[in-house]
Structure formats: C-alpha cells, structure tokens
C-alpha cells in the first residue's frame, strides 16, 4: 500500500478524510446527546419524512454514476460525452437541493425550527452543511465541465462522490436509528 497507488490527487483524499471526520464528529455528538433526552429525540426524529431522504439518496447515487461516467469519458478523450455526464450529475445535485428545500419547507411550515429541540439543531446543521457541499459540488462540476480535461474532471467527480459518501453515512443516524 503506497501513497502513489491512490487514484487522483492526494490533496483531494485529505479533503475527503477531513470532511468525513467533521460529519462523523457531528453525527457522533448527536448520538451521544440522545442520552440526555432519549424520548424527546425519538419524538423529534419521528417528525422527519424518511421517504424524502430515500428519494434524495437515489438521486445522489444516480448523479454519482453520471459523474463517474464523465470521469471515464474525459480520460478517454470524449469531451462532449464527459460534459453531458457532468451536466447530468449537476442536474442531480440541483434536484437533490430541490427535494431538500421541499423537505425543509414542510418542516418549517409544521413549526419545526433549529431551536425546537436539540435533535433539530443537529438535523439542520448536519443536513444544511451537507446541502452546502452539494451546492459547492454543482459549482465545481460546472467549472470542470468548461474544459472537460481529465485531471480536473477526476477532481470534480471525486468531490461529488465525497458528497454522496457523506450522505449515505449520515442518513441512518439522522433519519432511521431511534
């Protein structure tokens, strides 16, 4: 196992590891905080709509497929196809944000806010921080699509897969474990 064996830029792997650690710390803190008010946390979690989260997972992993294809096509010199893949991946990101927006709007409409309960403080912080990464990822995918050169496209795809990876890991503790 050598550093040189890692695909892509080492700096991106450092970024991926750092982001995973940040989200892992936040999620672990949320799980630990449940001990202070287990029933309150469970009642608050019951107000979330897990179907929206499942839909968003499908959207995000599908956009991850398009990003991976764009990376492959870019490496093969197929710029047009790579651009299409990046555009579809970015569209997936925008769809994810739309679904998240609808989810937030419903929750806020039901009187739920960041200070309603500590669970919702963690919920809005973790999912909001993740949504900010999705937005940043859409911008990154758009930027690397301009020239669609192999290395930047690979970097953009890696960032996108990190966003995907974080989502599948934070989803069970936030929406499902109770």
């Amino acid at each position: 196992m050598r550093i040189d064996d890692l695909p892509g830029e080492l700096l991106l792997w450092i970024l991926i590891a750092s982001e995973l650690l940040i989200f892992a710390a936040g999620t672990t803190a949320m799980m630990a905080m449940r001990f202070t008010d287990a029933s309150g946390f469970a009642s608050a979690q019951d107000l979330l709509d897990g179907r929206m989260a499942a839909l968003n997972t499908v959207i995000l992993v599908t956009s991850g497929l398009f990003a991976a294809r764009a990376e492959r096509d870019s490496a093969a010199g197929q710029r047009r196809s790579a651009r299409l893949g990046l555009a579809l991946a970015a569209l997936g990101g925008l769809l994810f944000l739309l679904v998240k927006w609808v989810e937030y709007a419903r929750e806020i409409g039901a009187g739920i806010g960041i200070e309603t309960h500590p669970f919702f403080t963690f919920y809005f912080l973790l999912t909001g921080f993740h949504a900010a990464h999705v937005l940043a990822g859409v911008v990154v995918l758009g930027l690397v699509a301009l020239r669609a050169r192999p290395e930047p496209v690979q970097a953009g795809a890696m960032f996108w897969h990190m966003v995907d990876l974080v989502w599948v890991l934070i989803l069970p503790p936030i929406y499902l474990l109770g």
Binding site: M1, R2, D5, L6, P7, G8, I16, V61, G64, L65, A67, A68, A157, M158, H161, D164, L165, V168, L169, L171, P172, L176, L177
Partner: peptide
C-alpha cells in the same frame, strides 16, 4: 442491518466510484 447497509453503500462508493478497489490496500 441499517448500519451494515450504510457500510456497504460507502464501500461501493469508495471502491467503485472513487476507484479504491484498484488501489492495493486502500
């Protein structure tokens, strides 16, 4: 089961999309 499924999803993303399956040991 739910956490195991999350683990396998993460493994699929790391191995299949981030190409760690082809990077010995990583």
């Amino acid at each position: 089961g739910l956490l195991a499924l999350a683990f396998f999803k993460a493994r699929a993303i790391l191995g299949g999309f981030l190409h760690l399956r082809g990077a010995a040991g990583w």
